[in-house]
Write a protein that binds this DNA or RNA. Structure first.
Lengths: 204, 204
DNA sequence: TAACAGAACTTTTGATTAAATTGTTCAAAA
DNA sequence: TTTTGAACAATTTAATCAAAAGTTCTGTTA
């Protein structure tokens, strides 16, 4: 079966690409439909032929990014150790966030009520992470390296929350802001340490 | 030396008490200086004789609460185990927050730029916690229960951040809000688990 | 002079409006 | 079916203003 190249898909792709670049560069609210239309040399109205509205365009871009990252998450399997598994996932996620840092600007602003579709994507990623890592735990338990746990997923969940809580102690620790780009590396290092201690705490 | 009872102090206390109750019940922004003045049967202007302004009145109340809690923090010493030490501190803090939950309403609203004085108090509490717990670690290291660590304070700091990150996975995990009152118990249980794993991860 | 109160003053808040920008739809053309 | 220009609707921004609340002033009392 040959793959028919749908010209609609090509246009959609063009739009998605422009949107991604704009969102990445200027953030959601500073990107206008006019500008995207200009990028791809289409009328603004045509954007609405391909995408229902601006927020769903953003979601579509997000989904694309997420799909790429999902592949990365799911590709990693049978690690030499649980620690390796956690560290790899952690590092992958860190790179994912670094790479698209400004794109997630949307999250920081709309922090409160993100569209359901966004939460679904976040849920997908989260679910995949949990699935992958809890499997690792189960395997290690079978090997006898890790002591048996009731609910591997709950353990992974707990660690992910804990990792999420790690931040830099800024001078006098003011504000609880999202981590700034230049703090990410320090945070990443701290997280690696946390993972090591945590994993050791699970061992027999 | 006999303690002279300063009538000014008595009035200050009255004001602080009324303010505390008001802040606790209605929060900072829904409490007016008029109401406090009414409570203590003084003129509103008199409040400004005793306290520079509203925010510093709040800070004074906060400092009082903090002092009480500081005593609790510092009282706990020589625990049977490191785990006991962490769990005790964690439980104390949990009770402290539960008891004054609505008082901290101020934090949730002004989340961004709290007055410096507030951050100082938070710093005091944090410092005391770190001090206490890192001492426990140092002791346990000497006993050989825990394996040597470079920087005990950094370890405690990391754990505190991690604990701070623990939250409930609400249905579809929407929002990153401050934990609601009715979620506190679930969070506390998760934190206890995290402490156990973490401490075990530090052991020899 | 320290402790106080009434009234005046200043700042903040909330509601309202108007203007401008931007997102969205639609009728019609290619 | 795909595309557009133009109309339309929604959102944002700024400006305004009155009420409420915070703060200060002036002077009185003890």
């Amino acid at each position: 079966m040959s793959i028919a190249i749908d010209p609609q898909d090509i246009k959609k792709e063009k739009i998605l690409e422009s949107a991604y670049n704009r969102f990445l560069h200027y953030g959601y609210s500073k990107t206008t439909m006019n500008e995207i239309a200009g990028d791809v040399s289409m009328s603004k109205a045509l954007l609405y032929y391909y995408f229902p509205d601006k927020s769903q365009l953003y979601v579509a871009v997000m989904q694309k990014l997420a799909n790429d990252h999902l592949k990365v998450i799911k590709s990693g399997t049978d690690f030499p150790s649980l620690e390796e598994a956690f560290i790899t996932q952690l590092t992958n996620k860190n790179e994912f966030i670094l790479k698209n840092y400004n794109f997630f600007d949307f999250f920081r602003l709309n922090e409160q009520n993100l569209p359901d579709a966004i939460w679904e994507i976040i849920g997908q990623l989260h679910e995949a992470e949990i699935e992958q890592l809890s499997n690792c735990i189960t395997n290690e338990v079978k090997k006898g390296v890790i002591k048996p746990v009731d609910d591997p997923k709950a353990i992974v969940d707990l660690l992910l929350d804990a990792l999420h809580g790690v931040r830099v102690r800024s001078f006098s620790q003011k504000k609880i802001h999202f981590p700034k780009l230049d703090q990410m590396e320090e945070i990443h290092q701290k997280r690696l340490l946390l993972v090591k201690i945590f994993v050791k705490g699970l061992m027999n």
